[in-house]
């Protein structure tokens, strides 16, 4: 009995070894196919034709199918029930390991082992996945079908829009050109005139008696023209004032100004202007 069980065990071990060997060789095939495909994509992308790209995909897909078949085969022992335990972790460089893994894994350390020997997702990820599948199961098949239809409809609408963008956009820009002017030249002129010389803005009257019913004849207005009434082309006149014989008189005046202003404020009727002489 003891012996027969040992024989059974040995046979199982042999089977496992054989299937691992087959798996390794199949994976090696996939690896080679991938490598040559990547090399082609990198070096021959100018000459590569779409049919040959499809051929490469077909080859890969066939090889992956073979692996799947092998794993599902009844004779293949369940790899899932095999346990791999890392016995020694080391920070030292392991040349054998580097050679075996084509220098991809030079050190068998605590840092990389969890990633390489992982057979399940992280607990949090597993938890999320569980939630998602629970949620998916909650929706009835009818509701799911409806959602699929809605999504398909939206996708096809979107595709349609993307495929005829020009019509829509042209129509839109034409509409915006026709219907909406973005500026109004007469507003421009009104604003410029307001900022430049107060056209359209209410004139200020200093506090004091204002003759009722006679607009624009406040005390300050009578002394001279308002800014709006003065021609702005008066540069020449001012220049003449600057250089002409009047200038020294102006310069000599500051001392006088305050008193004359007082006079002016008192005489609200405005017949006297500080600079009228």
């Amino acid at each position: 009995n003891d012996r027969s069980s040992r024989v059974f065990q040995q046979r199982e071990e042999k089977q496992l070894e054989a299937s691992v060997d087959t798996l390794i060789s199949l994976v090696a095939h996939v690896k080679n196919a991938l490598q040559s495909f990547i090399a082609k994509l990198e070096n021959e992308y100018e000459r590569l034709t779409w049919p040959s790209v499809l051929d490469n995909f077909a080859l890969l897909s066939g090889q992956l199918n073979t692996i799947n078949r092998l794993l599902k085969n009844e004779k293949t022992p369940s790899f899932r029930s095999q346990v791999i335990i890392p016995l020694v972790l080391s920070q030292e460089r392991d040349d054998d390991l580097a050679k075996l893994t084509e220098k991809r894994v030079p050190v068998f350390s605590h840092e990389i082992v969890p990633d390489y020997l992982r057979t399940k997702p992280d607990p949090e990820v597993e938890e999320q996945e569980k939630q998602l599948s629970a949620e998916a199961a909650r929706i009835g098949p009818d509701a799911a079908q409806k959602q699929i239809q809605t999504l398909n409809k939206m996708c096809s609408n979107l595709l349609e829009k993307l495929n005829n963008p020009r019509e829509d956009r042209d129509a839109e820009s034409a509409a915006s050109r026709q219907n909406k002017a973005s500026f109004n030249p007469s507003d421009t002129n009104a604003l410029v005139a307001a900022v430049a010389f107060g056209k359209g803005l209410s004139k200020c009257r200093p506090p004091g008696p204002v003759a009722p019913g006679i607009p624009g004849q406040g005390p300050m207005m009578s002394g001279g023209p308002t800014l709006q009434q003065v021609t702005i082309g008066g540069a020449a006149g001012q220049q003449a004032g600057m250089g002409g014989p009047v200038a020294p008189q102006q310069l000599g005046q500051p001392g006088k100004i305050p008193s004359s202003i007082k006079t002016n404020i008192k005489s609200a009727s405005g017949s006297i202007h500080p600079y009228n002489r």
Binding site: G198, L227, V230, G237, Q238, Y275
Partner: peptide, 12 residues
């Protein structure tokens, strides 16, 4: 906006 009226009629 402030004006200073001069005798030439052109305010500053």
């Amino acid at each position: 906006v402030y004006l200073l009226k001069g005798q030439q009629g052109n305010p500053f």
